[in-house]
């Protein structure tokens, strides 16, 4: 099976993140990592490859620095990578991003595309369906379990009340949550091997996309302004002297919760 995994580089959610003067994510100074959910996507792809054979390709759209995350992803085991990189992409909205990723996927002809269910920076949670819509293929999203039988895919999709069992034939896009597996750590051998794995770079021109359709120029939505939210002020703090529970209820009652 020809599998492509979508991997996005994001600023580490554990450290301070900010927007820059042009209202885009500050990626220059940030501590950048692989979007956590995408590590689960890579793991799932490798498990399918182990069971059914085929090839696993990483696809990333991002600035030059994203190359570090691509190497890191390759060190887990995938065979090769494609990096879409073009200055005109800066400021892209979700629509433009999906157009570029769908075009790049078109050059790879995958049976199966696996993505994270959401990124930790944008958290827009729409990329898998947008891409499926553009490619005219099935989307099985929010998977906590995926089974592959021949060309048939079946997922368990987590819902508020429980889960739905959803099935489709390849080609398809699947997105995964962190409940699906436990991503492997790259081995020393994997890290060494990753250095030699092919990474193809593609510019917009290679995909037949005009610069005016993406980035700031082609954005379908626009951040008008941003402001740091004043940090919440801690309020009253008491130490339990044996009456903490009663004091807590006093507070809740003063706020009309009890």
């Amino acid at each position: 099976m020809n599998i492509v995994v979508l991997v996005k580089q994001v600023p580490d959610s554990g450290s301070e993140r900010s927007l820059s003067g042009d209202n885009t994510v500050e990626r220059q100074s940030a501590n950048n990592v692989i979007n956590e959910m995408d590590e689960y996507a890579i793991e799932e792809a490798l498990k399918i490859q182990e069971a059914h054979g085929g090839e696993v390709t990483i696809l990333t759209m991002g600035p030059e620095r994203a190359a570090e995350s691509i190497r890191k992803a390759l060190s887990m085991g995938p065979d090769k990578a494609v990096h879409v990189i073009d200055d005109a992409l800066h400021g892209s909205c979700a629509l433009a991003t999906s157009k570029v990723l769908a075009a790049a996927l078109g050059t790879l002809n995958p049976d199966l595309v696996i993505a994270g269910a959401e990124s930790t920076d944008g958290r827009v949670q729409v990329m898998p369906h947008m891409i499926a819509e553009r490619m005219g293929v099935a989307a099985l999203t929010g998977a906590r379990k995926l089974t592959v039988e021949g060309g048939t895919l079946t997922i368990e999709r987590q819902t508020e009340e429980g889960y739905e069992v959803v099935t489709a034939n390849t080609p398809a896009v699947v997105s995964v949550w962190d409940t699906i597996n436990e991503p492997r750590y790259p081995s020393f051998k994997g890290i060494m091997a990753a250095k030699k794995k092919p990474v193809q770079t593609l510019a917009l021109a290679d995909l037949g996309i005009d610069a005016a359709e993406v980035g700031f120029a082609g954005a379908s939505s626009q951040v008008v302004e941003h402001a740091k939210r004043p940090p919440r002020q801690g309020g009253q703090r008491v130490t339990d002297d044996g009456n903490g529970g009663v004091a807590l209820v006093e507070f809740l009652s003063s706020e009309k919760f009890v």
Partner: peptide, 15 residues
């Protein structure tokens, strides 16, 4: 809200 609510953004569609 962006980044865990640390930043508040005002935005509009342009299309």
């Amino acid at each position: 809200p962006a980044f865990a609510g640390q930043v508040i953004v005002q935005s509009k569609v342009t299309r």
